[in-house]
Simulated assay, not measured.
Amino acid sequence: MPATSKTELRAIAEKEFAKLQKLIAPIEESVAMLPDPEADGTTIKDTIAHRAHWITLFLGWYETGQSGQKAEIPAPDYKWSELKRYNADLRASQHDLSWEGAKASLDANHQTLLAMIATLDDDALYGGPMQGGNNKWTTGRWAEAAGPSHYRSAAKYIRARLRALAATA
Rank of each mutant, 00 (worst) to 15 (best):
I55M: 13
L9E: 01
I24R: 03
N135T: 12
T139V: 09
R163W: 01
Q21L: 15
R10P: 04
A143P: 04
Y78H: 11
A11I: 05
A3Y: 00
A154W: 11
P74M: 07
S30K: 10
A143C: 07
W80Q: 05
G65T: 10
L120S: 03
Q21S: 11
N135E: 05
H53D: 13
F17H: 08
P26H: 11
N109G: 06
T168I: 10
I55K: 02
L106M: 11
P148L: 05
T139Q: 07
K15I: 01
T4Q: 12
L20H: 04
T139Y: 04
D40F: 03
A102Y: 04
K84E: 08
A166M: 12
A52W: 07
S98F: 04
E100M: 06
I24H: 02
G140A: 14
W61M: 00
L106Q: 09
A11N: 14
E38F: 01
S81Q: 09
A124Y: 14
W80M: 11
Q111H: 11
E144I: 00
S30A: 14
T119G: 09
A155M: 09
K15D: 14
E8M: 03
L120Y: 03
L57W: 02
E16T: 01
P35G: 09
L90V: 02
A124I: 08
K19C: 03
G133H: 09
D46N: 06
M130W: 01
A169G: 13
D40H: 05
G132I: 04
L106Y: 05
L162W: 06
I117F: 01
S81F: 02
R163Y: 01
E16D: 12
R152V: 14
I55V: 12
I24P: 00
Q94T: 13
Q131S: 13
A75K: 09
D121K: 11
Y126M: 05
Y86R: 12
I117M: 08
R85D: 10
L23H: 09
P74F: 08
T43G: 08
L114I: 08
G68W: 09
D121W: 15
H150N: 10
L20F: 10
A155S: 08
A167D: 12
E100P: 00
F17M: 03
A92P: 01
A102Q: 03
N135I: 14
A160R: 15
D96G: 15
H110M: 06
A49N: 12
D36N: 09
K6I: 06
K22N: 12
I44E: 02
L34Q: 13
Q131R: 10
T112N: 10
Y62D: 06
F58T: 02
D123Y: 11
P129H: 12
N134E: 14
G132H: 07
